[in-house]
Amino acid sequence: MIVEMPDTATAEISRKIDALHEERGEAALGRVLTLLISTSEEELEEALETANAASREHPCRVIAIVTDGSDAGEHSKLDAQVRFGADAGAGEIVVLKPFDGLKRHLDTLVIPLLVPDAPVVAWWPSKAPEDPSKDPIGKMARSRITDAIRSANPDASFTALRAHWSCHDIDMSWTRLTVWRAMLASMLDQPPHLPITSVRVQGQSHYIPLDLLAAWLAVRLDVPVTIERSDDLNAITGVFFERENGVLSMERPYEDQATICQPGESQQDVAMPMRTLEECLSEEMRRLDPDEVYAEVITKGWGMVDHE
């Protein structure tokens, strides 16, 4: 159910949400967080779809703020939409389209609509502010999720994010690596436990997760890590550990399937599907505490590898 509320006020939106809850016999108290999405008209639906899917795992109130309306005029105007039931995953969705003067104080616009006594998570599905922690929306949030590789200029965007990083900021480039990192760690669990002398990682050009993976390996292993990039490759395609008995490697040339090779052993295949955006968002919503490992990787590890 989608309720259009043109030219409205936040108090009316709150009342509408309460009324809909009552009508449907639901409790509004079950929401465990508020997810603020800062987005544009164009990418709104895709972002909401992802948030919907993630909210099934994690019932939340989603407030999407569409920020590309005009802001030249003198007068303020607010268009809104409230989505419930089948159109809103396991929570409710509020879409806010502020115009003109209202756009200059987005924080007080959403404050009356936040779920009481619950954490606030901010997500920028593509374009992110240079310093999320100074952004009016970001300032309210306990966890700030950006996604540099989906922005117009990933490299520049990530450089800015790194420069202004604070401990509650996280970029989804890191989340995309979790499965790779887990597989590599379990690969090294297996004997023989020989020292690693150097590492090569291989993947797509201008792909920030590849740089982060290299930085992480450099911090953890404290050996030279080199990056091989190619425009023909998709995402991360391989990691090669150099050890005295040869190369221990894990490759994912195609989607879905990874191969582990180790000297003197037959090659092993393992299913390793690409992570979806929805999985990444769910993972971020699952853990709201600062990620110290990520902090170390972007502060210390980043400088340990060559980024073109």
Partner: peptide
């Protein structure tokens, strides 16, 4: 036993602060 005497060798890629990383069973 899994890691062949944890004291002698510990996996450099594992970090107790790394709460994100799931534990994958060995072969």
């Amino acid at each position: 036993a899994d890691q062949q005497t944890a004291s002698a060798w510990s996996n450099p890629l594992r970090d107790p602060r790394d709460l994100r990383m799931p534990r994958v069973a060995g072969p």
